[in-house]
Design a protein around this nucleic acid. Structure first.
Lengths: 240, 240
DNA sequence: TCAGCACAGTGGTCTGACCACTACGCTCAA
DNA sequence: TTGAGCGTAGTGGTCAGACCACTGTGCTGA
């Protein structure tokens, strides 16, 4: 009966569930630098004892931080802090795109238009010959097939290569979420069924031309128009 | 030995942990519309039986979807699907800002600069008198005090009011995460310590003037310059 | 009529057990 | 000496069952 009292010596009152508290505490440990990226945490059992909670609750906290991309659990090995890079932390961004519907999809496309046009403009100024070759590879592959699945794959890769050339990994990770495969598949399916393939190709060519000419403003306009087309189509779909 | 085989009649092979599968299945239920926003789910115990897993594992899945803003658990009442609005799903975005360090902070500020400048431009075109009054209220309050905490509060509210006037809730939710209190506190502290208060005020006034004049381009420039200032300062800090 | 209470139902927490996998060191033959 | 193979301790993954804390509701009684 002695160990039930000094549960929290600090003035940190018990607010919320114990799991929530555990999440905050671990997050704080990382935020304060007590746990470096890539570091290994104590075992679940030990952490539970340290924070004075059961292993079940601790596991829930760990699971929560795992889906957020902060921690990574390796079966049989241990629990580790991720590298905390943009890609790790923004992976969950895809859920937004997957579960958004109606007007929210238009808003997402608007955000994508803003970010992607800027990223494409940056890419026009910074892109290296090697990166440009990668872009061209996917552009050619996209034009060389009629398989919608394959076209979608190269379409995604085309834009991904451009965004990568912009040099901002955080922006790239956000756009990756906004262009997640399931999201594109949901929206583009309807768009492309209306025979928009030809237009899409022209727009891709225009973007490529701007990159080749290293013309940021042209690249921005081309990318904005490209996303804007889909955005407008979706808007009319919803207003019907 | 009979019940171990027919664990999954469907061709859905057992990949990943059972918890991960449960997360995907619930997400799918929502994505396919079988669970509407605001709907109440079966009890934890019942869900566990339905998916053929233990209550512990089911709880971990629910916890995961809770931190992602997809589900909401109410003690003693039940588990509900959130409204799946931008604010719900993008709340986790704050973790990124909280745990990012070094060069990643600059990238985040770059994203914020792009989005906030566009949002401010949109606001200049759309803002209503009532919304403008709200903006002016925080601008005045910000200039009327010397308490850093209070200034920070009104600073946040100032920008929040502008972004809200832009009319894109998704963008607003992302910017909210990028401007989270802890994030601002971490970066702003150092910035303001160098006597940047005066400059910040001038920039805020410039933004307000552009809104008042309903001049989107001026608003865009003013907002970009405002965030860009901090971005540049942070960049030089890191390069030392 | 309605304030108050009792209770069934639900999420929150804990315990302890066992399974599945990994990492590492030891053994033993080449 | 070396290295392939095996054994084992340790760790995350899963399960079962119990009890606690809170909510909602219907019943009771003034």
């Amino acid at each position: 009966m002695d160990e039930t009292l000094p549960r929290q010596t600090e003035p940190a009152a018990q607010k919320g569930t114990v799991t929530q508290r555990a999440i905050e505490q671990i997050k704080a440990m990382i935020g304060e630098g007590r746990l470096e990226p890539g570091a290994r945490l104590p075992t679940e059992r030990e952490l539970a004892v340290q924070l004075g909670i059961s292993r079940s609750s601790m596991r829930e906290a760990i699971r929560a931080l795992t889906v957020l991309g902060v921690l990574e659990a390796r079966h049989g090995s241990g629990i580790y802090v991720t590298q905390l890079e943009a890609g790790d932390l923004l992976e969950t961004f895809g859920v937004v795109a997957d579960l958004s519907r109606g007007p929210q999809l238009v808003e997402l496309l608007e955000v994508r238009r803003i970010l992607e046009s800027t990223a494409t403009a940056l890419a026009a100024a910074r892109i290296t010959p090697g990166e440009l070759a990668e872009v061209e590879k996917h552009l050619a592959a996209m034009h060389a097939t009629d398989d919608p699945e394959e076209i979608l794959s190269h379409d995604l890769a085309f834009h991904r290569a451009i965004v990568a050339a912009a040099g901002n990994d955080t922006m790239a990770a956000i756009l990756e979420g906004l262009s997640s495969r399931t999201f594109r598949a949901r929206v583009w399916r309807g768009y492309q069924e209306e025979g928009a393939f030809a237009r899409t190709r022209r727009e891709h060519v225009a973007i490529h031309r701007a990159l080749l000419a290293r013309d940021p403003e042209a690249a921005r306009a081309a990318a904005a128009a490209h996303v804007g087309e889909v955005e407008e189509w979706l808007r009319t779909q919803l207003s019907q």
